[in-house]
Design a protein around this nucleic acid. Structure first.
Lengths: 208, 208
DNA sequence: ACCGGTATCAGCCAAAAGGTGGAGAGACCA
DNA sequence: TGGTCTCTCCACCTTTTGGCTGATACCGGT
């Protein structure tokens, strides 16, 4: 039986310990290294050349998870990277998959799910938590939901708490136009109020 | 030497494993139970009567962390509850301290910090991570800007994009009361609209 | 030359939110 | 006991938002 070597990357000590403890119960999986930042991850990957990298996206300071994935994939395309994070933010999922992540697990995943993801990853299978999969599916099914540049601009200002009038002044357009854009934005985001739009915008696009 | 019994409450399996592994390295600390929800926590506390409860505030479904703290404190005031969570949201900190939490640690805390908090808690000392402490300090310096627990609760729901009507239903109060609370919140935050309040709340409190 | 997407603007109406002022109940503290 | 804080509720009024319909104009690709 081939044992699968795993590198853990997370800035939370307890999460690393937990994963180590969990993975340690499986005879075919061995944790060969740990890192608490993107930079450390690259070094550790160089040193241990693990088969699988289990990585949190949100790392306190320095290089973020997405960038780390890109670099890892670039240096060693055989290495499988599995994202292991707390949130299922749309933007993060897309970016992670784009950067070359093989799987996307949420931190409340069951142990079995984690084991399956690690084993699947070395075989080229991509495993993701159910909520993540459904979000990805949604996005693929609904390309309409992409905001136009102007709409994105408005949404961004919206999250600063401006009124329609202020939005108009800021963008040099009439209040009527602002309302039109907003209506389109609401439709695309699947919400009915500006409050919900702000909440959705912040929760689905970065900003955490 | 007295060993300190600890109950872990977190809906993430890996976090529980991690804490268990970390605390297991200390000869004077013993994990006597685990729970993954507020309800389970109350049961487990009943069964094991631990000296310290280490609890995540954000629990997926059912009872939230704050409510769990209140009930734990009510049933056994000698028990020390330490909050162990990912974010340092102003509202959460205030509410947790109010509910009777003895300490407030962030999940990226160093192991030593966690040990110190557990040992301190049984002696009646309250330990908190530096960022948390600084936020609390800020709030004490600016008493006008402190939201009441109820207001904080409202603000938190507000950031989910709910309407006044929905807020009322969720909190079992009339729309009139919701508007009163909102008016107070706006005054304290120094904003005029709900959109600005949401934006401010998210940018100044946790949720990143 | 036509069509689809984007950006701009208007008017009308209903719903939601915000401002003002007032008020009672319960908790806590001096 | 009196004062303060918090939470709850009400009525009235103004402003803001959102839903709907419709319009003009520019750009790019077929």
């Amino acid at each position: 039986m081939n044992t699968i070597s795993v590198l853990l990357v997370d800035d939370h000590t307890v999460v690393r310990s937990g994963l180590k403890a969990l993975l340690g119960t499986q005879s075919d999986i061995a944790v060969v290294g740990e890192a608490s930042s993107g930079e450390e991850a690259l070094e550790a990957a160089q040193e241990h050349s693990p088969a699988v990298v289990l990585m949190d996206l949100a790392m306190g300071a320095g290089m973020d998870g997405i960038e780390a994935i890109k670099q890892l994939r670039q240096r060693n395309p055989k290495q499988a990277v599995i994202v292991f994070t707390t949130y299922d933010s749309d933007a993060d999922i897309v970016r992670a998959v784009d950067a070359g992540a093989m799987g996307y697990l949420l931190k409340d995943a069951a142990p079995e799910e984690i084991f399956a993801a690690v084993r699947g990853a070395v075989q080229g299978k991509s495993v993701m938590s159910a909520p993540v999969a459904s979000r990805l599916f949604q996005q693929l099914r609904n390309p309409d939901e992409i905001l136009t540049p102007r709409e994105a601009e408005l949404l961004s200002l919206l999250t600063e708490g401006l009124s329609n009038r202020d939005l108009g002044k800021r963008l040099f357009i009439s209040e009527a136009t602002v309302k039109t854009h907003l209506a389109h934005i609401y439709a695309k985001l699947g919400v009915e109020t500006r409050a919900a739009a702000i909440a959705t915008a912040i929760r689905r696009e970065g900003m955490r």
